[in-house]
Each structure stands twice: as structure tokens, then as C-alpha cells.
């Protein structure tokens, strides 16, 4: 059954067990972020090191190319920027309050 924020105690699975897999996607953790990874498409070589290392699977890849970052789930840990090769440095961590949508 579908669990929503309105589901009452009579209908919840017992013991707080979550019966469906993959539901972490429904939990938006992007708001926890204080630094946002910004990728420079010109510099990026699509080596995919960031994709391998991202603990939140937030580097979106299609056909072996990075197409974006999942800001709904990226917590801003900065691992992607750290593993980006030193001569490339395509990802910079920008303070959330200085990003475009908050300026």
C-alpha cells in the first residue's frame, strides 16, 4: 500500500518496517546542503570519477555523459569536487546563499 504523510496508525505496516524498496528517493535531502556543487561543462571531461564516488547517487549520467546533478538529494558533501582531477577541477563548491536562486 502507498504510505503518505496522512496515513494513520491503523494502516501503517507494523513495527515501522518499510515494505517497499527504493523509497529513499522520496525523501528530499537536498535542503540539508550548505555548499552546492556547480559543474563547468566546458572543463568536464566526463571521466565519471564524481559519479563513482558520489555517496548519494546524485550525479546524473546518460549515455556515459554527465547531464546534471540531482539537487533534490545532493547533501553538498563536496566529494565530487575533491575527486575531480587536479588539472580539470570542473566542479566548484559554492555557498548556497551565493547561488543564483538565492541571490
Amino acid at each position: 500500500m502507498k504510505i503518505t504523510p496522512d496515513t494513520g496508525w491503523k494502516k501503517l505496516p507494523q513495527g515501522g518496517v518499510i515494505l517497499e524498496a527504493g523509497n529513499a528517493e522520496q525523501y528530499i535531502t537536498g535542503s540539508w546542503r550548505t555548499f552546492r556543487p556547480i559543474r563547468d561543462e566546458q572543463k568536464c571531461t566526463n571521466c565519471l570519477l564524481c559519479w563513482i564516488h558520489c555517496p548519494d547517487s546524485s550525479i546524473i549520467v546518460e549515455n556515459a555523459k554527465i547531464v546534471g546533478i540531482d539537487y533534490d538529494h545532493c547533501k553538498g558533501c563536496g566529494i565530487c569536487a575533491e575527486v575531480c582531477p587536479p588539472r580539470i577541477k570542473a566542479i566548484t563548491m559554492v555557498e548556497e546563499r551565493k547561488t543564483d536562486d538565492l541571490k
Binding site: 496508525w9 501503517l12 518499510i18 523509497n23
Partner: peptide, 27 residues
């Protein structure tokens, strides 16, 4: 429910904050 039922993966003991914990206690 069984953790070994790999055809139906379940999560036991997840984070359960102010939005659901009270309902689980009531239950």
C-alpha cells in the same frame, strides 16, 4: 516480514521522526 525475503526487500528500523514515530507508538 523477513530480511531474507530478497524478492521483497524490507527496511527494518529506519529513521522515524515527528511525522510517523507517534503513529508507530500508538500502534
Amino acid at each position: 516480514n523477513s530480511l531474507l525475503d530478497i524478492a521483497h526487500p524490507h527496511t527494518f528500523g529506519p529513521l522515524d521522526l515527528y511525522d510517523f514515530y507517534f503513529e508507530h507508538k500508538r500502534q
